Amino acid sequence: MLYQREREQLAKIVRNMFSRYETNTAGGNVSVRVNNQHIIMTPTHMSQEYHCNISPYQVLVVDMDENIVEGDGKITREINMHMACYKHNQQIGCVLHAHALKSMVFATMGMDMPNLTESTQKFGDIPCLDFAPATSKDLADTVKHHMENKALDSITNVMLLNKHGVLITDTNLIKAYDNLGRLEYNAYIAEKALLFDKLGICTIKNKSLNYNLDE
């Protein structure tokens, strides 16, 4: 089996995502660049049909022309969004799209998420992008334009997809999944902090602090 270790790791992580409410039966998909010729990617309907309990062989090996090289399943229609990220920067090694429970509050409301925790400061702003329909070319273009406007060399990108979910890129799968966990904790904190602020219990203070950004 091609890329067995990498496909086993990806299958394990998407199972964790589902069990931790970091995605749901409405979707989510993850891909990893293994070299200049191939990515590995979760198949379409991995959440709806399998509840993310997929085997390593269901993780598809796909070439850069979006052809399946190996694996049991079909390619998700959101591959265009993944490819837009990989073509943006050759250093991007993972694209993670999820319907994470707490972050979905901000995505559904079309709100930028306040970045409040120390562990998320490396993200910078956490924007909610303009709405574009799921799986559409417009959505892929919206993501591409955001990344281009952010920085041509951006590798770590964390954004909310309006009414849809979250999208994260980084150099590898472990870092991207780590970012998802950090984002979800920040979403929980931000939701409560906004309520405290609105109720007059405690005001959100936007101070410039000397955060430790080392990983």
Rank of each mutant, 00 (worst) to 15 (best):
T25N: 03
M159T: 09
S55Y: 14
Q58D: 10
L101R: 08
V143I: 14
M109H: 02
M113G: 10
N24K: 04
K122L: 09
V143Q: 03
R20E: 14
T203M: 01
G27H: 01
N29H: 14
M147H: 00
D214R: 08
A176S: 12
S119P: 01
D138N: 14
L2H: 08
F18E: 01
D112L: 10
H82V: 13
M41D: 01
N179V: 00
M147T: 09
M111K: 06
D63T: 10
K137L: 05
M147D: 06
E70D: 05
I155A: 15
R182I: 11
A26W: 05
H51C: 07
G71T: 10
V143N: 08
L160N: 03
H51L: 11
N89Q: 11
I39D: 05
E6H: 07
H97D: 04
N80R: 03
L10W: 06
I68M: 06
D112Q: 07
L173D: 08
I174M: 02
H145L: 15
I174L: 03
D178M: 04
V59I: 08
R7M: 01
P114Y: 14
G93P: 02
I201D: 06
R182N: 12
H51M: 12
M1H: 00
C85R: 10
N186V: 01
M41K: 13
T108I: 01
G73D: 04
S47C: 13
A134Q: 01
T23I: 10
Y211E: 00
N67W: 00
N172C: 08
H88C: 14
A100L: 05
N206Q: 10
M104L: 10
E49V: 13
N157H: 08
N210A: 12
Y211Q: 10
S136H: 02
E191I: 04
D130I: 04
E66D: 12
Y185A: 11
Q58A: 07
N16G: 13
A11L: 03
G27V: 13
I75V: 14
R182Y: 12
V69G: 07
I204Y: 02
D197N: 14
E148V: 15
N206C: 09
T25I: 08
Y21N: 11
I54V: 11
E49R: 15
Q58V: 11
S136G: 00
G165V: 07
A100R: 06
Y3Q: 11
I92P: 04
I155K: 07
I75A: 02
T44R: 13
S19L: 13
S47R: 06
K175L: 03
L195P: 00
K102V: 02
A134L: 12
G110T: 15
K175M: 14
E215H: 06
R5Y: 11
D153N: 13
L152Y: 07
D130S: 06
N35W: 06
S55Q: 15
Q9S: 05
D138F: 10
R7P: 03
A140Y: 04
E78V: 04
D170N: 14
T169H: 05
T171I: 05
R33F: 15
L96C: 11
K137P: 00
N24L: 07
H146K: 11
L2F: 12
A176E: 07
Q91A: 08
T44D: 09
K144P: 00
N89T: 08
N162E: 10
M17Y: 04
L116N: 13
D214H: 11
K74V: 04
L139V: 14
P43A: 01
M17G: 03
Q4P: 02
I13Y: 06
I189S: 09
H45N: 14
